[in-house]
Amino acid sequence: MIFINPQWQGSGFTDDLKWGTQTFISYFKDRDTKVIPLSSKELTTIGNIKCFEPLLEQAKFFKEVISTSKLDKIATIGGDCGIEIIPISYLNQLYQGEMCIIYIDAHADLNTPESSPSKAFHGMPLRTLLGEGNGEFIGLLFSRLKPEQICYVGLRDLDEPESKYIQEYSITTITDCQFEYVQTKLQHFKNVYIHLDLDVLDKSEYAFSMFPTNNGSSVSNVAELVRKLKANYNVVGFCITESTATTLEQLNPIKPIIDQIQL
């Protein structure tokens, strides 16, 4: 099964990600999928988090679905990166913390509501998973991560508080999207969760993400990294987020990646 979570409010007040997720629903129409419902609550800013109420309600929806599914592996398509707090914390509890998060993303997603310049929740999920941030979202977690479980790949756009946190806790950061570098981090882990925000890709190859940038990773390198991780480790979760593609044709460049979503 592939969970498709069209949550977009974590990116702020623009719903581009909702339409991007609809394109994925069409792409996977012949596969076993389950779509997480969207909330209709107002897009209010509470506790320095934009769209707080629908985000909280959607996280509760997703938690209920994951709880009743009782899966030992989870594949998810988003939506914004804020959806990650539920599947990651569930699998981390299931595997008793013996899981490395390979976070393939141009951004660190390590802000708190107080440190975030944008107040958009998609910049906060990892910090929430580490047990810092809004108490209501933290209260929905199945478990919390430790900094040593995180391995960034392709990170290149940081806010100052995020840089300080990474330095303080010596979080592994790998610039090149190459399996050989990532493998070093995985010496002490058997179980792997892959998070992929498509903004890690160079916009010359794929421009349909929320924040496409130059000097990103190539589609072929990311696809090869995912393939090798799946071949050499127990990949228990894989989530692809933040596509704004509105046609199936626009997804063609990333087929080598998205066709690997099934676990």
Score class of each variant (00 low, 15 high):
180 E>N: 12
70 K>T: 07
63 K>I: 09
20 G>W: 04
73 K>I: 11
201 L>S: 02
132 E>Y: 13
219 V>E: 01
216 G>F: 02
78 G>L: 03
56 L>P: 12
73 K>M: 09
233 Y>A: 03
105 D>C: 05
158 L>F: 10
122 H>T: 04
161 P>A: 09
33 T>L: 04
14 T>F: 13
255 K>E: 14
171 I>Q: 10
148 E>M: 10
191 N>W: 03
200 V>D: 08
215 N>T: 04
212 P>H: 09
235 V>Y: 05
80 D>E: 08
93 Q>H: 06
173 T>R: 05
119 K>N: 15
27 Y>V: 00
229 L>C: 02
47 G>H: 12
197 D>Q: 05
238 F>M: 14
68 T>Y: 10
234 N>A: 07
107 H>A: 02
20 G>E: 05
184 T>S: 08
130 L>R: 00
54 P>R: 09
75 A>N: 14
65 V>F: 11
63 K>L: 09
161 P>W: 10
121 F>V: 01
194 I>N: 00
216 G>P: 05
12 G>D: 06
209 S>R: 03
6 P>I: 05
262 Q>L: 14
255 K>Q: 11
52 F>S: 07
218 S>T: 15
158 L>Q: 09
51 C>H: 12
195 H>Y: 04
57 E>F: 05
213 T>F: 07
95 Y>K: 03
63 K>R: 15
197 D>Y: 06
74 I>H: 06
207 A>R: 13
250 Q>P: 07
11 S>D: 13
142 F>S: 10
233 Y>C: 01
109 D>R: 06
204 S>I: 11
130 L>F: 06
254 I>M: 04
85 I>Q: 06
179 F>Q: 05
